[in-house]
Write a protein that binds this DNA or RNA. Sequence first.
DNA 1: GGCAATTTTGACCGAACGGGCAAAGGTTAG
DNA 2: CTAACCTTTGCCCGTTCGGTCAAAATTGCC
Lengths: 211, 211
Amino acid sequence: MIIVDAVAPRTRIQAEKRELILEAALDIFSRHGFRGATIDRIADAAGMSKPNLLYYFRRKDDIYSALMQRLLDTWLQPLRALDDVGDPLTELRGYIRRKLEMSRDYPRESRLFANEILEGAPRIMPMIAGELKTLVDEKVAVIRGWMKAGRIARTDPHHLIFSIWATTQHYADFDVQVRAVLGPDKGAAGRYEDAARFLEQLFIEGLRPKG
Amino acid sequence: MIIVDAVAPRTRIQAEKRELILEAALDIFSRHGFRGATIDRIADAAGMSKPNLLYYFRRKDDIYSALMQRLLDTWLQPLRALDDVGDPLTELRGYIRRKLEMSRDYPRESRLFANEILEGAPRIMPMIAGELKTLVDEKVAVIRGWMKAGRIARTDPHHLIFSIWATTQHYADFDVQVRAVLGPDKGAAGRYEDAARFLEQLFIEGLRPKG
DNA sequence: GGCAATTTTGACCGAACGGGCAAAGGTTAG
DNA sequence: CTAACCTTTGCCCGTTCGGTCAAAATTGCC
């Protein structure tokens, strides 16, 4: 994917302020969705006036798009790192761990992405059906290779990937529910440790080759 | 949970029109979230004028609340049905199947719920921290009992429930992504069959008692 | 058939929102 | 120092949105 800033920053101030705006916008968009977020609130969170913000991003969509482009690249990195040559179970364990760490360290990005998909992915459909599908197909082939070689149990690689996405992102996207159900005793650190242990056991035992 | 219609329907027309509105509102809210949905669009989808709709539900929030109350009860039913006395693996397999069927048959409800949680559950937090937590605690105790008796593998029951929620709801909430990644060849029926097979294998193998 | 209660409509309101604009205020390179 | 450029601001506009209201149309009951 090629990352293109709608307008390349020409000055020091532009680079700084754009960063400030994107940071604030990530906060607001991830909490309220595209329609629920207002330019005023983003400007407020970024500590500037609305016209000033609009000087850096001409339209609300521009902010959102910039955020999406930046998000998508980091979002696919864990899957990209899934390596053909390593030990299958180690590779998959690593993938699960990386995805879970992304949920822990970038929950706003996860929610932003979830929001976009929930609404039907109106703005990132091309990337989903293009780049993402290509990458998944590639990794599905890798996993299928492992299965054919008897190195992991036979199952559906697509759905394996889906369930890794689902279980790991759940801890970012449904965070409030997870916290409420677990009760106030568990801190964030403990939650993620328990989740990592559980998911590792679930997927590794579920995938260990038979016989 | 007690279901209270804000205003009890007094006439045949009220009962019918309220139903019509809720059906339309489910469609719009689940696709655009609370803020993204407008009364005009809901009224339009319900085939009536905005003031007419507002005659049945005085405020936008009232429609949303009515929808939520109705949703929550059906939403918990699959977990309620998880039975202490049955065979553990059969019970869990049944729970997974029921949850997956809910995603298949009630995707709009699933997305509505997901949207609410994503936004921090501002309107249903009491129910999450109350009724839902109580139910989960109860079922966690059941599962823990099975583990102590050596009938399923030892693991974290809370996270087991979370991952069943995550994997099954994924097929409703992230439907467009799933479809795009799988490609156009797979119909909805095939998708859900494959998912059911995969999830059964994953969880059952992952939980089979050792030794 | 007529009257009361219910339902529907059109016209309207204030607030919030996305965005435009020109002028004022800063920065920076020569 | 200053001219050219960049940044910030206040003010404004048209639209959309949630919601009101009174009057018209319809329904249900005796």
